[in-house]
Computed example of a mutant assay.
Amino acid sequence: MKKPLILVTNDDGISAPGIRALIAVMSELGEVVVVAPDKPQSAMGHAITINSTLYLNKVSAENAAITEYNCSGTPVDCVKLAVNEILHRKPDLCVSGINHGSNSSINVIYSGTMSAAVEAGIEGIPAIGFSLLDYDWNADFEQIKSFIRKITIEVIKNGLPEGVVLNVNLPKLPENEIKGIKICRQAKALWMEKFDKRKTPQGKDYYWLTGEFVNQDKGEDTDEWALEHGYVSVVPVHFDMTAHHMIQQLNTWNLNEKN
Rank of each mutant, 00 (worst) to 15 (best):
Y69Q: 01
H100I: 04
N10L: 01
L93W: 09
Q249S: 07
I178H: 07
L173Y: 05
P161G: 08
P17L: 12
T152A: 05
E123I: 00
A21L: 10
L7F: 03
Q248R: 11
L81I: 12
P37N: 07
K194R: 14
R198Q: 15
M192T: 13
Y135L: 12
S42G: 06
D223L: 05
N10A: 13
V118I: 15
V214R: 14
T152K: 01
S102D: 03
V79L: 00
T49Q: 03
F195K: 10
V59K: 09
I86A: 02
N215R: 07
K182D: 09
M241L: 07
V8R: 05
E257L: 10
T200S: 14
M192F: 14
R185G: 11
I128S: 02
I106C: 14
S105W: 04
L29D: 10
A127L: 09
V35T: 05
A21Q: 09
K204F: 13
T74P: 01
H244L: 04
K150D: 15
C78P: 01
D240E: 13
K182A: 14
L87V: 01
D223Y: 02
I106A: 06
Q216G: 05
N63A: 06
E162Q: 15
E162Y: 13
Q186A: 11
L227W: 02
C78F: 00
E177V: 08
W191L: 13
K199Q: 12
D134L: 04
M192I: 12
H100P: 02
Q216L: 15
V155N: 01
Y55E: 13
R20P: 09
V168K: 00
A127T: 07
S104N: 14
T74I: 02
Y135S: 08
D221R: 07
D92G: 03
G121W: 11
E257H: 03
V83K: 02
A65E: 15
T242I: 03
P126N: 09
V83M: 13
G112Q: 01
E119A: 15
A243N: 09
I153R: 14
L132M: 11
C94V: 11
H244K: 12
V108Q: 08
D11Q: 03
Q41L: 01
V25A: 12
V32Q: 04
S111G: 02
V34C: 07
V25W: 12
H88F: 04
A82K: 03
I66A: 04
L29S: 07
